[in-house]
């Protein structure tokens, strides 16, 4: 397996004179679930957006599969917290959206993929519903399915479950983890929720307050393993790791409060 599927090499970013990201080196392996954890507004989102080609580094380079990232394309799909699905398209239309720009798929193949991803997110019955008529959790499912259907290899998720109620969020976390393993995708997931980070991640990158600097690189998969059923969050290992991460955050940012 290629060890540096996504690679950050001395990446920095400033907006005007304000430094947002300090020099960052990081490599992410293919098919791993990496969570960027850090305080709100710390620059972790900017770092993720640069992988998507939506922002460009002030210095340094970002590579995807050896190739320097310069502009967005369908290999890296974004899932946002709000405005995540297009309100003028049905669920089916949303999932089909990215495939309109691929000419390597026949009409039948597209239809088959739409059906496949509708089933994957358990929304076969909502095929013709508009986003305004379904719940917030369903809208995020649609956004995920749309990105997968377009053929993205990497999912870039910016606090996608931040606006959901606790129960829906738990369920979506379990589903996302399953989908990531079944569909073999690489995910960079940004959050400031420690529990969410520990439950989802193979690996947590803990960032400092702005300008973002990597504080810790935590190997969660080594502790919790690859399978994350809902019960995983009740186990002792989960609790211990969660507390450990919380302590790390308190120790590292303690001086700033």
């Amino acid at each position: 397996m290629d060890p540096a599927y996504i690679g950050f090499e001395n990446v920095t970013k400033s907006f005007g004179t304000v430094p947002v990201v300090s020099s960052t080196n990081l490599s992410i392996t293919r098919y791993s679930f990496v969570v960027f954890l850090g305080p709100s507004g710390c620059g972790k989102t900017t770092l993720m957006r640069m992988v998507g080609g939506l922002d460009s580094p002030s210095s340094g380079t970002i590579r995807l599969d050896g190739e320097i990232v310069s502009a967005p394309d369908r290999r890296r799909g974004m899932v946002f917290q709000s405005y995540s699905s297009f309100p003028w398209l049905t669920v089916e239309g949303n999932i089909n959206f990215g495939m309109r720009y691929r000419n390597d798929l026949s009409v039948e193949e597209r239809a088959a993929r739409v059906t496949h991803y509708l089933r994957l997110i358990g929304m076969d019955d909502f095929r013709t519903s508009y986003p305004n008529r379904i719940s917030g959790g369903m809208r995020q499912r649609v956004a995920i399915a749309r990105t997968l259907a377009a053929g993205s290899d990497v999912l870039l998720m910016d606090e996608p479950f931040g606006a959901l109620d606790a129960l829906t969020r738990e369920r979506l976390q379990v589903e996302l983890r399953q989908i990531q393993r079944e569909e073999r995708k690489t995910i960079i997931f940004v959050t400031h929720d420690v529990e969410e980070a520990v439950f989802l991640a193979d690996r947590i990158i803990l960032f400092s307050a702005r300008p973002a600097r990597i504080l810790r690189d935590i190997d969660v998969a080594a502790v919790l393993g690859p399978e994350r059923p809902l019960e995983a969050r009740e186990g002792e290992a989960f609790f211990r790791l969660r507390n450990e991460v919380l302590h790390m955050i308190r120790n590292e940012t303690g001086g700033q409060r």
Partner: peptide, 29 residues
């Protein structure tokens, strides 16, 4: 038009022209 819509479309492989017709025009309709 929410910038999220535009960025989503770009990461789904749309070109600027397609973002204009398939996203911006629809969103502002």
């Amino acid at each position: 038009v929410p910038h999220e819509y535009v960025e989503i479309a770009f990461t789904l492989g749309a070109k600027p022209r397609q973002v204009l017709t398939d996203v911006a025009l629809r969103a502002m309709g």
